[in-house]
Write a protein that binds this DNA or RNA. Structure first.
Lengths: 213, 213, 213, 213
DNA sequence: GATGAATGAGATTTCATTCAT
DNA sequence: TATGAATGAAATCTCATTCAT
């Protein structure tokens, strides 16, 4: 048995620590996404990364640190792009929101990353460090950008109800809905996210001249 | 000595099984809500219910069964009420949605029950039986009611964008948003749910005559 | 395999918690004495006590607590007896010290308890709570009793060097020496503790009249 | 990139193996002294020696070998000096013991080396090779020297109780006492080692003529 | 029915040791 | 020779579940 093990054990690789770290996070992401924090065993992560249990601990002090660095490490290129567009007033507000939802679908909802968002929604309240980070780095910035965008739309007179400037969270709500629906109910009933977003935008904005309302 | 102990030990209560079961579920709810499925120990539940560990197993075969019967057992008096109102056309659609959001706040968002919803969002995907039940018993029914309601509003010409009849999930989105926000970010930034819902309704519906648009 | 295990597993006993606790401490004592703190596995303790791993944790929160309660629980009947004798001036100082060393031999050096003392000497510095307890409960009291005893001997003019009243620790030194010698070197060279103590006392005290000096 | 790294990485020193070995032992000593055998990680030793983990294994086959060669490698310059003095009858016995205790304080008790002695006392019984070595190389020699010294003192009529020639271990006892006290109780109560040794010697030896008894 | 001591599989984490570079 | 990433056996501790009382 020992002999077999010795013969079969795969050769030890010594790779770039950054890459190894990334591999572990990749594996961890897939495990956490599938089974949540508690349901994931460090051994699973290691196995998925193709390394030994102990190796994970060379890169992350413990399970929680791995989880936190996983969910915290997710930058928000979407927000950055929308933020940049808003900054330079690249396009009219409605187009910007269209871009936002389109990016959200392409980059989050239709990729594995949607699991990450679900993870945060589901496990966040057990990790205040995570929610604090999220609020500070992502949410408050997102709210700020959305508010600017909505204000601009309001000034331009293109909003049906300018008061929603007060609650930019409303813009995020349909996005969260699609994430949650897809995780929980998509198997039983399809939700057409494209249409959901389109309908929402049509509700938000006055029709352009020449459009059929 | 044993005799004394026997005499002194508090009498074993023999209460109505239904009530005992309800007590356990109540205790379990509070524990699961606070710490999630994996974070809850059966002993905690028993302690909270004021009974011994083993007793829980007289009423539920295992932890998962307890969890499932907990999250499944939550009826939806809100939907029932709204459903009834819709059924009998008791009031105009906008008032019905106002009632829906008000009930949601009173009965869910501002009570411990909001944790239950968060639980389902967070742990649901590990318990297909739960999501299946939810979809079948609650969601599909809710969607149906909302669709009827929106159709009626559309017919009455009170919707700014009648197309949202296609995606009644949009109505739920702000409610989910408040649940999630309150769980994760309320500590860092307050979200005014009243205003959120009001703004949303004002966006959805055309202003009544005499209202300031 | 499962079948065999099921059949072979010994019946669960439910015994008096105090007794169970005592059994565990007994087992722990034997393990710690033999292999020290770090060298002892909780599983060994459990096995020696004839119980399952987890059962130990029903009685002690962790390994350190088990160790501490083990070494702290050792009262010092020796000191109590000598203390009582000193209190009531039951016999002349020299006889009291003879009694002290004799009790030490009977109750500690020649029993398994000597390992306990060695444990404290060896591991004590890793457990400040233990040394603090020892100093407070045993050492300072012992020093006090020995000082009284030596003062009385000095007053009676029976000490060869009355100055040792200042350093009662000298009285303990030969006792420690026997413990250490027995643990480390007895296998290679016998140390006659009787004679060691007798010679020490003869050095300390002037010969009685009629004795051959 | 690799090239740069290769060029920039600090040159691997290739120093005298004897010196490297000594450095490792020095580092190991400090670690073992502070945290005992089990509490010391090989990595700590390497770090303290300023080398990589693997390098330790080029000089010592395993942890136990390192420990053993550490505690065994400690020669006893004290004994050598006293031994030499005894050999050449350089001074009267009492002065020799004074020198012994003084050297013990200067070279052991008041230096880091006291930890070594404590280590041997504490861990010795797990390493028979160590105690065997100690007895053979140091203890038996020490006992022999002390016995010669005491015999000479007895012949000279300067001992209060010539019988202690039979148990030269008594001479070591106060030294052990100071080591143990300092490790365990010094924080709570100071022990004046000077006075302890002086009082002991005054008890052992008859006062010189002209001294105040 | 009710209890809670007991179980033991299983999870996390550590660290002596190896070996490719 | 020196390195330190990688390994994996082993240790601690947890907790769902059982069952004698």
């Amino acid at each position: 048995m020992d002999l077999v093990a010795t013969v079969l054990e795969k050769p030890r690789r010594k790779i770039d620590p950054e890459q190894r770290r990334a591999e572990i996070m990749q594996a961890a992401f897939s495990c956490f996404a599938e089974r949540g924090f508690a349901g994931t065993r460090m051994e699973d992560v290691a196995a998925k990364a193709g390394i030994a249990k102990g190796t994970v601990y060379l890169h992350f002090p413990d399970k929680e640190a791995l989880f936190i660095s996983l969910v915290s490490g997710v930058a928000s290129p979407i927000l950055d792009q929308v933020g940049a567009a808003v900054e330079q007033q690249a396009m009219p507000p409605r187009q910007m929101l269209e871009m936002f939802y389109r990016l959200f679908q392409q980059e989050v909802l239709d990729t594995e990353r949607r699991h990450l968002l679900r993870l945060i929604i589901g496990e966040g309240s057990s990790f205040p460090a995570v929610t604090e980070y999220y609020h500070r780095e992502i949410i408050s910035n997102g709210i700020r950008i959305l508010r600017i965008l909505l204000e601009r739309a309001a000034s331009a007179g293109s909003l049906r109800n300018p008061a929603i400037v007060e609650t930019p969270q409303l813009i995020m709500a349909p996005a969260l809905m699609t994430i949650i629906w897809r995780s929980l109910f998509e198997a039983y009933e399809h939700l057409d996210a494209d249409r959901l977003f389109a309908n929402f935008l049509d509700t938000l904005f006055l029709p352009e001249k020449g459009e059929t309302p």
